[in-house]
Design a protein around this nucleic acid. Structure first.
Length: 299
DNA sequence: AAAACTCTCAACCGCAGCAGA
DNA sequence: ATCTGCTGCGGTTGAGAGTTT
């Protein structure tokens, strides 16, 4: 029972790679390309397991690896992205050219984790200073911050009366084509984005969103896709554009739960993405424009 | 000078997701 | 629908370098 180990461990080298091993691996990949890691050691004549070869290549030998210290800008970006994504090191690394997930993870664990815990960020402090009776506490627990980047499927949603204001207080935006609703809960300053089939049952207006329990097939909206896409991917002929087929177009992956975003989190998201989101397709504009409203500090 | 302690980061490990059979 | 193999990810470890006592 159980799966076979990724390789036979006996007789394999372990620990630090030698310059000779590095050269063999480099030469082999230069000739044959990346991939097929399992068979690579045998073919290349390395006494290493495939995983080890892959890791060595990705974290050290790849030609586009950036050497040297993490710059202050990179550090800032890591902190912001970590706030958004949590320990999704590969996603974070994807935003930092030349940096590896392992490097960022190490840097976080050795430098930033302490730093971040010591100092709440300046903006939070400024906001806290502006706190008034209409605001809710701005302390953001990690589980509120972190975007669920895994594509998960949502089958049901339940909205409880107490947690939502009466229907006239809802800020509701339904894209006419995709039928995606974005409901702003003004009470807790967060939003829930829902793709829906159910919107078709009550058109563009949510007249009675309370006590709502319904089956709905989620569309597929994955922020990891968004982050991975570098945004420009979403422009032009992207599959994320609206089309005449109104189902699941804006949201290309699935979600088990509605995606909750606080305005704080969204601000970070927009700001982090600002440098890559300069040319968004019109199809995404309704989403961002609505987001812009939510970003207004209502204090 | 050397022992003790701390820090860094490359490497390892187990698990999960995905694709193909 | 299920199984299997491969790949990628995130958590953890431990050797070596650096610092303190």
């Amino acid at each position: 029972m159980g799966r076979n180990p990724c390789c036979v461990k006996e007789g394999l080298n372990r620990g630090t790679w030698t310059a000779r091993e590095d050269k063999i691996l480099k030469d082999y990949i230069a000739e044959h390309g990346e991939g097929r890691w399992r068979n690579l050691p045998k073919r290349a004549g390395l006494k290493r397991c495939g995983k080890s070869c892959r890791l060595r290549w990705l974290n050290y030998l790849r030609p586009d690896i950036k050497r040297g210290n993490i710059s202050p800008d990179e550090e800032e970006l890591i902190i912001r992205l970590h706030k958004l994504l949590g320990n999704r090191w590969s996603l974070i690394a994807g935003r930092l050219p030349g940096r590896t997930d392992n490097e960022i993870k190490n840097y976080w664990n050795t430098n930033l984790a302490k730093k971040v815990h010591q100092q709440p960020n300046q903006r939070n402090r400024n906001k806290a200073e502006n706190f008034n009776s209409h605001s809710l506490p701005l302390k953001m627990e990690p589980h509120n911050h972190v975007i669920r980047t895994k594509a998960i499927k949502c089958t049901k949603v339940s909205l409880h009366q107490e947690s939502w204001k009466k229907s006239e207080n809802f800020g509701t935006n339904v894209h006419p084509k995709a039928g995606a609703s974005m409901l702003q809960n003004t009470e807790n300053k967060s939003i829930v984005m829902e793709s829906n089939n159910w919107s078709s049952s009550y058109g563009n207006e949510v007249n009675n969103p309370t006590d709502l329990l319904m089956d709905f097939k989620v569309g597929e909206f994955s922020l990891s896709d968004l982050l991975n896409s570098d945004f420009s991917d979403l422009c032009g002929t992207s599959s994320a554009t609206y089309s005449n087929d109104d189902s699941n177009v804006l949201f290309p992956s699935s979600s088990e739960k509605p995606l909750f975003l606080s305005d704080e989190m969204l601000q970070d998201f927009w700001s982090v993405q600002a440098n890559v989101a300069s040319n968004l397709n019109d199809s995404f504009n309704p989403f961002f424009e609505t987001g812009g409203d939510w970003l207004q500090d209502t204090n």
